[in-house]
Design a protein around this nucleic acid. Structure first.
Length: 908
DNA sequence: GCGCGACCATA
DNA sequence: GTATGGTCGCGCC
């Protein structure tokens, strides 16, 4: 066995992974047909497979605990005495796993008298001394003590790496303080005594203060309170704990680190073992690697495809290609342009592909020095136009809305059958990956694409596509089309297997794309003079506030810097700290300043300053700059594949967070206006998420309240506080409203109590009362949690799916967070589905009217905004309200409410 | 020039 | 307590 000095040493803590894999729910289900469990085997082997992929040159060594006692039991008979014996269904998996690992040719170490940690520690130390890069693959945080500049940890199950900086970040201390840290805390599971009530926080605090365990011990009489007593009474046993927590780095081992290295895999034995234990995927992969064909398995790496990419510079070749595209019936298509901003972008070339691996790029506007002569943009578009508008040809693209927006400037439309791979991926699984092409190619095709930065550079010196040499541009562009087609071939069949997902894709998302494109191209009219005027006023007030603040502070400082503000408030003015940020610095967040403002003058100034400068920098300064010179309008981008719940998002500018709550903020909405003789019409769904909750939960009380058209918060208040509807006070209504919202967010009593400013018990009492009055809601919440836990996903009314991988987390906080998301997603997502359906119906009606006096301009989650000519505004609004009310058939009425005005503020 | 945390705008 | 996007300061390279 020899090691290549250049390859990193990968030390695998097999025992740690074995135990963890054993407890993974979906692995627990695995067994052979005669009942031999194989989940833990599968888990560990998958993990080794992942390591092989991540470290192709890695020298993998697998270490397991041996049976029997270790030197730690001699030191301390109670060590791990609390551990239950290993379950039989885990024990029975160990020998087969060892056999498989050996057959794979990997060095396997099982050393008696020490633990796997100690073997790893010994090799890590040897490797470190030889300067060999070492990666320890483990799920055990104790190993952090082994980290050095040459040694780092990777947790393959959570895919997180930790080097020295990572240790400091995670623990707040350096690797060489980890043993001290573990000593102070002790370990309940392993039965190592520590300081009673000393957890991670306290341990880190002490070590920061006194540097080392020795320092802590020397200064133990300085620690006050109960915890100080605990520390002093633990002093005697700390040296023992230290010894137990220390991973041994001088074990006697059969091989030196330099002697470790892989052997030839024993394929025959592997085949036999995989067959015996019915490890079908591994078997299939092994056979595939040996050149045998196997039954199709979607997760198997697709065969590498030979690629032939062509650059088209003459008309005859273009014609031949276009004929091929037509004959193929389905083709992928992509544009290359000068900008990501569709309003500024100019077309530089187009690429297409109708057979995996065969693609072409047609440059039309590369203008670097020495660029060859190219076909004209006009000619190429003229020839392509009928294909893109064909009613029969299927056009496949990645984020086609962008291409459609760019081509619209050249009067070329993409219509007829259109499929978008970004949306396919999004509908298939909104959380598995980002939906950009590079990520999709890697996930679904196991292919690393050429990145734009690879050919264009990055930063200020980044080239635009027209400046890139054809030799580099063509493979990139052609690959885009090729990969798009292959992604479609990979993703569409997956959607077809899930009729619900396919229907969301075909009935909602794809039809919505041209609707969004029209809204984006149409844009929204902004009164830039009004905004500029507001900027000036705000600027003057900010200057005044700044002067006053500097006066009080006694020196100049940046009011916008939380760090400087924190110095002024808490260090210099000695104002008491109320709350800290997650990283431990005193918080200067709004709620804190609000509270301080009651007693001190400066926080109040800061609050006003913050609010105003936010408005100025984000809105009044920026929006006028975003008006497109060519249209005089502001053109946002709606992203259709960002949110996990099915909502749209809006960027450049974000039109979905224009202020409304504060007085000053509302003024910005006054700048959202309509053209001459037109009105702004805003129509929003009233309480849509609560209505959906009523529908999904089928709760009789809630259904009645909505059917009878009651004020839902008032009705809720009457039920919770046991008073007549008319006797509900505004305070009671406010609490009920907070509860109603909280339910949608999957709240806890703790969250509710914070929101409405009552004790936790009182909040719990309100919730109990609520669930007593609306038992259907309680059942629904419980069912949703259960479904999320069982299936790993939840669904909207229309079958949109949201996976919740964290629902299986053993980390309580994460699991709880996933459960809250599970509660919220069906309601938020169904609301998103409904307004999307409404947009489709409204747009269809507007297109049918063929009247330029009606335009849909914005979507803000539960609201649609239009500009409509004043002559027809009343009846048109009534018609649209009607369409929106009919967008879905729920057990309660959908109510859309309209406002009409000269600007967006007035329209509310 | 970039990435990240804190903060804050919306539904 | 859910879901987003934008700006700022600041430390880093």
């Amino acid at each position: 066995m020899t090691a290549n000095a250049l390859s990193p040493l990968i030390l695998v803590d097999g025992s740690s992974y074995l135990f963890r894999a054993y407890h993974v729910p979906y692995l627990q289900a695995l067994s052979t047909s005669d009942g031999q469990p194989t989940g833990a085997i599968t888990g560990v082997l998958n993990m080794i497979k992942a390591l092989k992929k991540d470290y192709p040159n890695g020298n993998i060594v697998v270490v397991f605990d041996a049976k029997g006692k270790t030197f730690r039991n001699d030191l301390y008979p109670e060590y791990k005495a609390n551990r239950p014996p290993m379950p039989d269904d885990l024990r029975s998996q160990i020998a087969p796993l060892h056999n498989i690992i050996e057959a794979m040719g990997l060095p396997l170490l099982v050393i008696e008298g020490v633990e796997a940690d100690d073997v790893i520690g010994t090799y890590a130390k040897q490797a470190n001394e030889l300067g060999i890069e070492t990666v320890i693959s483990t799920g055990d945080k104790d190993m952090a003590q082994l980290v050095t500049p040459h040694v780092r940890l990777i947790n393959t199950m959570t895919d997180t790496e930790m080097d020295e900086a990572g240790v400091e970040e995670k623990f707040g201390i350096k690797p060489d303080q980890i043993i001290d840290y573990l000593t102070l805390m002790g370990d309940k599971v392993d039965n190592i005594p520590g300081v009673e009530k000393c957890g991670p926080k306290t341990a880190v605090k002490w070590l920061k203060e006194y540097g080392t365990l020795e320092g802590v011990i020397e200064n133990s009489d300085k620690v006050k309170g109960k915890i100080g007593e605990n520390l002093r009474s633990a002093l005697e046993q700390l040296p023992l704990s230290y010894e137990l927590a220390t991973i041994k780095t001088d074990c006697e081992l059969p091989y030196d680190v330099s002697e470790l290295g892989p052997k030839q895999a024993d394929t025959d034995t592997l085949l036999e073992l995989y067959t015996k234990f019915e490890l079908r995927r591994l078997l299939a992969e092994l056979k595939a690697a040996n050149g045998e064909t196997t039954e199709a398995d979607e997760e198997i790496t697709p065969a590498k495809i030979d690629t032939h990419y062509e650059t088209i510079l003459d008309e005859a070749t273009l014609d031949t290609w276009l004929t091929q595209l037509s004959d193929a019936g389905t083709f992928a298509f992509d544009t290359e342009t000068t900008s990501l901003d569709y309003m500024k972008a100019e077309l530089v070339g187009v690429s297409f592909c109708c057979e995996a691996g065969k693609a072409a790029y047609v440059p039309v506007a590369h203008d670097y020095v020495g660029a060859p002569s190219q076909l004209s943009r006009e000619l190429v578009l003229e020839k392509l136009k009928p294909l893109l508008a064909s009613d029969t040809l299927v056009k496949v693209g990645q984020n086609l809305k962008y291409d459609a927006n760019v081509l619209a400037k050249y009067n070329v439309a993409i219509t007829g059958p259109v499929l978008d791979t970004m949306i396919e991926s999004y509908c298939y699984n909104s959380v598995a990956t980002r939906h950009n092409m590079d990520a999709l190619a890697e996930k679904y095709l196991d292919h690393k694409t050429i990145h734009f930065e690879d050919i264009a550079g990055k930063g200020a010196k980044q080239l635009t596509f027209n400046q890139i040499e054809l030799e580099k541009a063509a493979p990139y562009a052609a690959e885009d089309a090729d990969i798009t087609l292959r992604l479609h071939q990979a993703l569409y069949p997956k959607l077809e297997k899930e009729s619900q997902l396919l229907s969301v894709f075909k009935e909602i998302e794809m039809p919505l794309m041209p609707v969004l494109a029209r809204m984006e191209q149409g844009g929204v009219l902004i009164d830039d003079h009004l905004l500029t005027e507001q900027s000036h006023q705000i600027g003057a007030r900010l200057a005044q506030l700044e002067m006053e603040a500097h006066d009080i502070a006694g020196r100049a400082f940046n009011l916008a810097s939380p760090k400087q503000l924190q110095e002024i408030l808490f260090d210099e003015l000695k104002i008491p700290v109320i709350k800290k940020t997650p990283k431990g610095a005193p918080s200067t967040a709004e709620e804190v300043l609000e509270e301080l403002a009651l007693d001190y003058p400066l926080p109040k100034l800061i609050l006003e300053h913050r609010g105003l400068s936010k408005l100025k920098s984000t809105y009044t300064d920026k929006l006028p700059l975003m008006i497109a010179p060519s249209t005089g309008h502001v053109h946002t981008s709606y992203n259709q594949a960002v949110t996990v719940t099915g909502r749209l998002s809006s960027t450049d500018p974000n039109l979905q967070n224009i202020p409304i709550r504060s007085e000053e903020g509302r003024k910005i909405r006054q700048a959202f206006i309509a053209p001459q003789d037109h009105k702004v019409v805003a129509i929003d769904y009233s309480q849509i998420e609560l209505r959906i909750m009523a529908h999904l939960s089928d709760d009789a009380g809630l259904l009645t309240a909505f059917k009878e058209g009651r004020d839902i918060h008032q009705a809720t208040a009457a039920e919770i506080f046991n008073v007549a509807l008319d006797d509900v006070t505004s305070n009671q209504r406010r609490s009920a409203k907070a509860i109603n919202f909280g339910l949608i967010y999957g709240m806890s009593a703790f969250g509710l109590s914070k929101q409405i400013g009552v004790g936790r018990n009182e909040a719990q009492a309100y919730m109990d009362k609520y669930f007593e009055r609306y038992p259907g809601v309680l059942t629904y919440m419980e069912d949703t949690r259960q479904k999320a836990n069982e299936k790993g996903y939840v669904e909207t009314l229309f079958g949109r799916r949201l996976y919740l991988p964290e629902i299986k987390s053993r980390n309580g906080m994460r699991k709880k967070a996933a459960e809250r998301a599970a509660i919220n997603a069906p309601m938020q997502g169904t609301a998103a589905d409904i307004i999307k359906k409404a947009m489709l119906a409204v747009d269809a009606w507007i297109v049918e009217q063929n009247d330029p006096r009606i335009k849909m301009t914005m979507q803000v989650h539960d609201e649609l905004v239009f500009e409509i000519h004043q002559d027809i505004v009343e009846e048109t609004t009534a018609k649209i309200v009607d369409i929106m009310n009919q967008a879905a058939e729920l057990k309660v009425p959908l109510i859309a409410e309209a406002g009409i005005g000269m600007n967006w503020d007035e329209a509310h």
